[in-house]
Design a protein around this nucleic acid. Structure first.
Length: 567
RNA sequence: CGGGGCGUGGCGCAGUCCGGUUAGCGCGCCUGGUUUGGGACCAGGAAGUCGGAGGUUCGAAUCCUCUCGCCCCGACCA
């Protein structure tokens, strides 16, 4: 392609809107332009890369038996009502205003299950892996970070249909391996974390993450043994409170000015590990008292999986005194006004010598024994881990990092097939719901993550296979130098004949402009054609990534390009 | 939804506090010329109802009210 005929609007200056490197680079290199908040156009160069990404996705999903569909983005709302997700999605789903009953799909479990219901009738019809690359619409309350969080974005979403749980495991593992291949091929540094399956049911779920300050997820990672987990489920090896001797009798004491754990520590010189923080939640309209050690923070994702419902909230101030008899800061397990369910974090299992509120404002109890003085109904892992705590596997200190979620693989189970009545007959002629998995990858996010990882102060550094072109020919002063122009044309033709995608900078611009644009756009191999070299039968080859340059014979160029791309 | 910031030729910005000739600057663009290995130079030129509506005033980019949009932080994020 001749650059003089291609639309690649590079930018010398950037506004203050773009904050993260990938966003800045996409704008500067002429890959995208913004149309609205969370809405972007891909320009030819950017779309070129997007197509390469999608091609790799197709290759690898096809390789595990995936069959590509193209499902509608416009959906009848009835299907979504059948799974109760109109309500679950809430404002996230776009509703069409001038055509009642239509919505824009934020994901496609419903439509896939709809088709499965139509045609998958027997265990003989499975397994199936169905996938598509489609535009998703999500009304994000706050789009941000360029292409990372948008209201409209591309997703490769795959769904597996199986007649057995073993089949689901197999489909899941296939995707796990395919995802690794995909991200490896794209030269992305990523890690895989165990994740919460959320309120949407389902069993195992894992996320493919790219560490980044701009990431919206938080993960714990161990650099020693490779343990990594989303903070939603991350655990660490922390000391339990345990039991102390002697076990003193229960004793109430006044604490008029102590509202927080820190107040107690400061005012009464109490050790943090003997303090039991009480938090009252309303779960499905029932109050539940939760005890955390000291300043340990309750992790609501963990609470969700314990409670098996997302329908919970912290109790309101007026509910506190009504239920416990005290206000915040003075609640505890002893002498509660009403008898309610009480659970505690694992760390406090069977602990004694504890200090907690007396359910009377301005008073606490000391020497509380969870085994002697009250009944803790259950113990669960409920705490949010902190950076520096020991890895649960190898005790090396954990790092807590921000990360971008690139992909998510998910054992859905039968939630959608049951809701939509997608059943099949098993070997015994018994009707069973189809067992499903879902597997998503954010297409634009791949590009953004790649750019976050592969750039320098000059611009983008594309590496195969995502490069928008294989070779960038820079013709210097071609207007006045026939020999340069002729050499460029010859190289262009020869390279094209050899199957390379070539961008030829034939613009009437000064060398400086071309060099800077070329480094910004970041095509892996630059062939610089200038008069002095051409007069000696030479051209210059420059590799974008290493910055390495070599003056070579004109006729060596193709072999060297070929060599670069075969390595 | 809460907090903060911004909106001025195509792009990036100044001017706004303290109202007052014809609204500036850089980049880009057009014409002509000179240049050509790291974002060239000279000369000439086109292009802005200052986000929108209403108001105050002799006079509004500037003050007031409302409104729309965009960015950032937080909340939210199957």
């Amino acid at each position: 392609m001749r650059q003089s005929e291609l639309f690649i609007p590079t930018l010398k200056e950037l506004g203050a809107d773009a904050q993260i490197p990938s966003h800045q680079l996409m704008l500067r290199a002429g890959l995208i332009r913004q149309v609205g908040a969370g809405i972007f156009s891909f320009l030819p160069l950017g779309y070129n890369v997007l197509k390469k990404i999608m091609e790799i996705l197709r290759e690898e999903i096809d390789a595990i038996g995936g069959q590509e569909f193209f499902l509608p983005a416009l959906n009848p709302i009835e299907i979504w009502e059948e799974t109760n997700r109109v309500e679950a999605m809430g404002d996230v789903m776009f509703h069409i205003k001038n055509r009642e009953g239509l919505v824009l799909a934020p994901t496609h479990e419903e439509i896939i299950t709809f088709h499965a219901r139509q045609h998958i009738k027997s265990y003989r019809d499975m397994p199936q892996i169905w996938y598509q690359i489609q535009t998703k619409f999500r009304n994000e309350p706050r789009p941000k970070s360029g292409v990372l969080r948008c209201r409209q974005f591309l997703m490769k979403d795959a769904y597996s249909l199986d007649s057995s749980w073993e089949g689901l495991d197999e489909a899941y593992n296939k995707h796990y391996e395919a995802y690794k291949k995909i991200f490896d091929r794209m030269n992305l540094k990523y890690f895989i974390v165990g994740a919460s399956s959320g309120a949407m049911g389902g069993r195992l779920s894992q996320e493919f993450m790219v560490e980044s300050e701009s990431g919206e997820d938080t993960c714990a990672v161990c650099d020693e043994c490779g343990y990594s987990a989303n903070m939603e489920i991350a655990t660490s090896n922390v000391e339990p409170s345990g039991r102390i001797e002697p076990n003193q009798p229960l004793e109430e004491f006044p604490t008029p000015n102590a509202k927080t754990i820190d107040d107690l520590i400061v005012q009464f010189d109490l050790p943090e590990e003997r303090l039991a923080k009480s938090v009252l939640y309303i779960v499905d309209s029932e109050p539940v008292m939760i005890f955390m050690r000291g300043n340990d923070e309750l992790n609501e994702s963990k609470l969700l999986s314990v409670m098996k419902t997302g329908n919970f909230r912290p109790a309101l101030p007026e509910e506190l005194s009504k239920i416990t008899g005290a206000n915040t800061g003075s609640m505890g397990p002893i002498n509660m006004k009403t008898k309610i369910r009480m659970i505690a974090d694992n760390r406090m299992k069977d602990a004694n010598g504890l200090v907690s509120g007396a359910n009377r404002d301005g008073f606490h109890y000391k020497n509380i024994d969870f085994m002697r003085d009250c009944t803790i109904d259950e113990y669960h892992d409920l705490r949010t881990i902190n950076a520096g705590e020991k890895c649960p596997n190898c005790s090396h200190p954990l790092r807590v990092v921000n990360a971008i979620e690139l992909g998510h693989i998910f054992k859905l189970g039968t939630k959608y097939s049951e809701a939509l009545g997608a059943n099949f007959l098993d070997k015994d002629g018994k009707e069973q719901p189809i067992i499903m998995g879902s597997y998503g990858i954010g297409v634009e996010r791949i590009m953004a993550c790649y750019l976050e990882q592969h750039h320098d102060n000059k611009g983008i550094i594309w590496m195969p296979p995502l490069q928008p072109f294989h070779v960038h020919i820079l013709g210097l002063n071609i207007k006045n130098t026939q020999s340069v122009s002729d050499t460029c044309e010859q190289l262009l033709n020869d390279l094209k004949k050899s199957g390379f995608e070539v961008l030829y900078d034939d613009r009437d611009d000064t060398p400086g402009v071309k060099f800077n644009d070329a480094d910004l756009i970041g095509i892996p191999v630059q062939i610089i054609v200038g008069k002095k070299n051409v007069d000696n039968g030479n051209i210059e080859l420059k590799y974008r990534a290493s910055g390495e340059r070599a003056v070579i014979k004109i006729n060596e160029a193709i072999d060297l390009v070929r060599k670069f791309y075969s390595e």
